[in-house]
Design a protein around this nucleic acid. Structure first.
Length: 112
RNA sequence: AGAGUGGGUCGGGUGGUCGCGCCGGCUCUUGUAGCCGGUGAGGAAAGUCCGAGCUCCAUAGGGCACAGUGCUGGCGAAAUGCCAGGCGGGGUGACCCGCGGAAAGUGGCACAGAAACUACACCGCCGAUGGCCCGUCCGGGCACAGGCAAGGGUGAAAUGGUGAGGUAAGAGCUCACCAGCGUCGGGGCGACCCGGCGGCUGGCUAAACCCCACUCGGAGCAAGGCCCAAUAGGAGAGCGCAGAGUUGCCCGCUCAAUAGCUCUCGGGUAGGCCGCUAGUGGGGGCUGGCAACAGCCCUCCCAGAUAAAUGACCGUCACCUGCCCACCGGCAGGCACAAAACUCGGCUUAUAGACACACUCUCCGC
RNA sequence: UGCCGGGUGGUGAAGGGGUAUCACGGCUGACUCUGGAUCAGUUAUCGGAGGUUCGAAUCCUCCCCCGGCAG
């Protein structure tokens, strides 16, 4: 995943969480916001300290999410910002569980 | 064979399919591109408990306070670190744990108890001596004066312990040994140890104040430096006053809002770049030293991310647990603690299991 | 990542070496025909583990948890 497709500015996060549409699950909360001025999709994976105290576990969840985004889901061709926020239950979830939830949320958003 | 002690090393291997950060090279359509090559988490990277380097600050100067350290000697840049030794305590033992000063002063020691520090006298013991009574002047009784601190009892702790002598009863009152104190001689760099002598002893608490010796400016890479959109129109320097700053206070030193006057044209947010990895560095050998460690020689280059790379999935082998099983083997599950964020030296805490070494105890065999 | 502050009944707070205190709740009982008010009782191994002390919520050390500041 190229750097251009990573969401990193505080301003972008503020706009995404203020006006984005949310899809909920026990493992994952997905926030989607369309950006018409661009045709690039930007994505962020958020795993807070409440998921698990240990950095090793949080890093594993983040990497599984990133891998699921890369392999299990068709890349959107429209301008859109997406944030995947992991919940504490995702620390015990397998790669395939996370991928299923991600696919379902993107289908609901009409991106897949 | 079993149980254990000490320090040390390692902490999954291998294959397949996709993928990531950084560095270097090449290519072109010069880009947030493609290809090739190299490289990419730990013993604790952790907690942030100590200490350094490095950077900045209004210069860091003095005094007091506060704070820290605390057996001795050595090592180390330094440290609440390490090594060796000393003493005390624990363990059958290998070994482990602790550490200045209580006759410089102040304070505290609840409850209980007679008394808790100028020690004391409730029960108790004695009553030799003096007193009173009986009585033949021997003697016996009373417990008034008085003597005692051995025994009982209270407490965490009661002014040395054990034994003998001694006495009216007792007591370091006397003696022997032990503990403590002082002193002399010897050994050791020293903590301290060994021996002699003396008087016969003087609670505990300093992780209470304190005393003694030594140490101490503050903040921290979000330090700090550089380049600079948009927006706003001020911003900076000098003079000057209330004032402000340094972990607390005093002195000292420094700075200086706003208003005013004079001069100058820069300051800085978002963002980006540097700091940013070669360093008190790792490995091997020799020499000195009991050791920590030091010196010399050879050799190696070993992460630099920033919404944050170092992986995901699927096999297989090894290991562990459970079940089935006469055995071969099969099935299921597990396979630790945990991830850099300027760097380094320590400490502390978490950690499935594996390996080798040295040593101790018990039992058995020869 | 760095630096601070704090954990005491259900809740909010005192206490800084000597039987753990107060307020508001909750529960039980008494009073009342019933309820309220009132009175009495009950509800804590002081975040955990070691250490210093005769004795620790308090002093020291190490862990765990919560919150804040620095963009």
């Amino acid at each position: 995943m190229a750097k251009v497709n990573t969401l990193r500015r505080q301003r972008d996060f503020d706009r995404l969480f203020e006006s984005g549409k949310r899809y909920y699950d026990k493992l994952l909360v997905t926030v989607v916001h369309l950006r018409l001025e661009s045709d690039q999709a930007r994505v962020a994976f958020i795993v807070g300290r409440k998921v698990d105290k240990r950095a090793v576990v949080r890093n594993r969840v983040k990497r599984r999410l990133r891998e699921a985004w890369r392999r299990e889901v068709p890349q959107p061709s429209v301008g859109v910002d997406i944030a995947f926020v992991a919940s504490p239950a995702s620390a015990q979830a397998s790669y395939w569980d996370l991928a299923e939830v991600m696919k379902a949320h993107l289908a609901q958003a009409g991106l897949a």
